[in-house]
């Protein structure tokens, strides 16, 4: 089995996000960037599938400027076999990304595409689903468990009612959730070895795709600051206060 894992370079989850003064997005200059944490879980899962003898090759792909190669190198150091960098400085939205991934999934002939359920920057939660639709293959989203039997994959999804088990025919798209696994620590010798692994660079034209954003962002603003609370002395006072605000019934 051949696995394609899609990873995105995002602002590190530990960084306190600041909005640009002109409201045109968030500040990324001089800010620590990392692999989207859900994508890291997808890479880890691919490695575990390979280590269990269920896959022969893991390809990692990322879309963006030259710097996304840092995240590809991290995935290669974790153990992925080779990388594909789709180089562009354009604004790439989920539909465009999924068209590119479709091209790669088909030309590489992969059996499974793993993605994080969403990227923590735009929180769109669309690319995996759109890819499955364009590819006309089954999708299983928000996986917190994944196993294989013959040409099928079984996923567990955490839904409000409990755990939902889905079986999909391969090839398929699976997007992964937080509790699927805990990504490994990367060892130093593996980081050095990763420098020798190949990363193929492709352009949008190579993939026959145009950036053509379909959604335009009108503005970004930080959330309102929290207002000071009010302290009350007794339960009676609290109930009165809540009633006065219409939050509980009389």
């Amino acid at each position: 089995m051949k696995i394609l894992v899609c990873i995105k370079r995002v602002v590190d989850y530990n960084v306190r996000i600041r909005v640009k003064p002109d409201g045109g997005g968030v500040v990324t200059d001089g800010v620590k960037m990392s692999m989207n944490p859900f994508d890291e879980i997808a890479v880890e899962e691919a490695l575990r599938i390979k280590e269990a003898g269920n896959a022969d090759e893991i390809i990692v792909v990322s879309i963006g400027a030259k710097q996304v190669q840092e995240q590809l190198r991290t995935a290669l150091a974790m153990g992925a076999d080779r990388g594909i960098h789709v180089e562009t400085t354009e604004n790439i939205q989920p539909l465009t990304a999924s068209r590119m991934l479709l091209n790669i999934a088909q030309s590489e002939g992969v059996d499974l595409v793993l993605l994080g359920k969403q990227a923590i920057d735009d929180d769109n939660n669309q690319t995996g689903q759109m890819l499955a639709a364009l590819w006309d293959r089954p999708q299983a989203t928000f996986a917190s468990g994944l196993s294989f039997d013959g040409g099928k994959a079984t996923t567990i999804r955490e839904v409000d009612a409990g755990l939902e088990v889905l079986e999909v025919d391969l090839p398929a798209v699976v997007t992964v959730d937080l509790r699927l696994n805990e990504p490994r620590y990367v060892k130093l010798p593996d980081m050095m070895k990763a420098k020798k692994k190949t990363i193929d660079v492709k352009t949008l034209a190579d993939l026959g795709v145009e950036a053509a954003p379909g959604v335009s962002s009108l503005g970004v603003r930080p959330p309102e600051g929290r207002q000071a609370g009010k302290k009350v002395e007794t339960v009676e006072e609290l109930v009165k206060e809540l009633q006065a605000r219409g939050l509980v019934n009389d």
């Binding site: 840092e70 190198r73 991290t74 150091a77 620590y185 990367v186 130093l188 980081m191 050095m192 420098k195």
Partner: peptide, 15 residues
């Protein structure tokens, strides 16, 4: 170590 490898490893240590 190469600077990028050291940086990558230090990231792991921070984590």
């Amino acid at each position: 170590l190469d600077a990028d490898v050291l940086e990558q490893f230090i990231d792991q240590v921070k984590r």
